[in-house]
Design a protein around this nucleic acid. Structure first.
Lengths: 142, 142
DNA sequence: TTTAATTAAGATATAAGACTCTCAAATAAC
DNA sequence: GTTATTTGAGAGTCTTATATCTTAATTAAA
């Protein structure tokens, strides 16, 4: 995984919410159970995502969370970076002190290309697109 | 970076030793200074690498470390995995619970390909090859 | 209006990684 | 043999990520 558990949980939660019927309110505990995420920890992450405007939260009986339009349009990378800070170290795989574009180590350029492709992979599709395609797959295999 | 600081330091130290004149003994403190690695921490890592047979160590005045033939023939991946345990999580970038080869999420296959290429990048060349090519670059730009 | 349910907030606990310190063991120089 | 130097080994500290717990705030239902 390129990001931390926190980022992974955030993505799993947001993709879970993206697959729910429109405007349905889902409890934190239900997401935690379905996605097998530590409940209290997920609650914290959802709290943060609520602040950032990726989910709307509703207190009290019948309350819960639902995904916002902002989150649907956002990429996985955007959400993860918001929740846990910059993703993927920019340094070369060798980590060599002097390694740079001017003074490239033998793995420098290949790594730069792969790094770009990873970025592209997690930033070029919206959460909604990913969620929809995934729903189709789940339906087909059901 | 795909691995932790510990792995990064190990690689930088071993590549540094690989660039030294044959059979020269280099002190831990010298490597630490050149590569800007916390000295005591590096000492620990070198200790472990000595156990694994990647460096030979010599105590006392005039002592130090030198790279072994085993390390020269090894890949970066092998050394890092020995020093810090398995590298790169095998799970998909989405981290989705149900995501698998049978039930792939929309990013699954692209990620699998990139993952393989990363593995290949850090496992297909020997430490010696990388070090030699890097020495040439440094010389050319000197 | 009381109770139950649900999120918000903040404090606390646990674990792992990163880093430091101290002393022992070995070896070379004096 | 004594001293200075260098690695070996182990304990200890610091920081960050992960996870848990407790109480407050809010809301719906009884």
């Amino acid at each position: 995984m390129i990001y931390t558990k926190t980022g992974e949980y955030a993505i799993r939660a947001i993709l879970f919410l993206a697959r729910q019927p429109k405007d349905a309110l889902i409890m934190s505990s239900e997401i935690a159970k379905s996605e097998e995420i530590p409940a209290h920890y997920l609650a914290k992450i959802l709290q943060r995502m609520a602040k950032y405007g990726y989910v709307d939260s509703f207190k009290g009986r019948g309350g819960g969370f639902k995904i916002t339009e902002l989150a649907k349009k956002s990429s996985i990378l955007e959400i993860v970076e918001r929740v846990e800070g910059p993703v993927i170290n920019l340094k070369c795989v060798t980590g060599l002190k002097e390694c740079s574009d001017e003074n490239p180590c033998p793995l420098h350029e290949e790594w730069a290309e792969l790094r770009n492709r990873i970025y592209n992979l997690i930033s070029s599709k919206s959460v909604q697109e990913v969620a929809e395609k995934y729903s189709e797959t789940l339906k087909r295999n059901a």
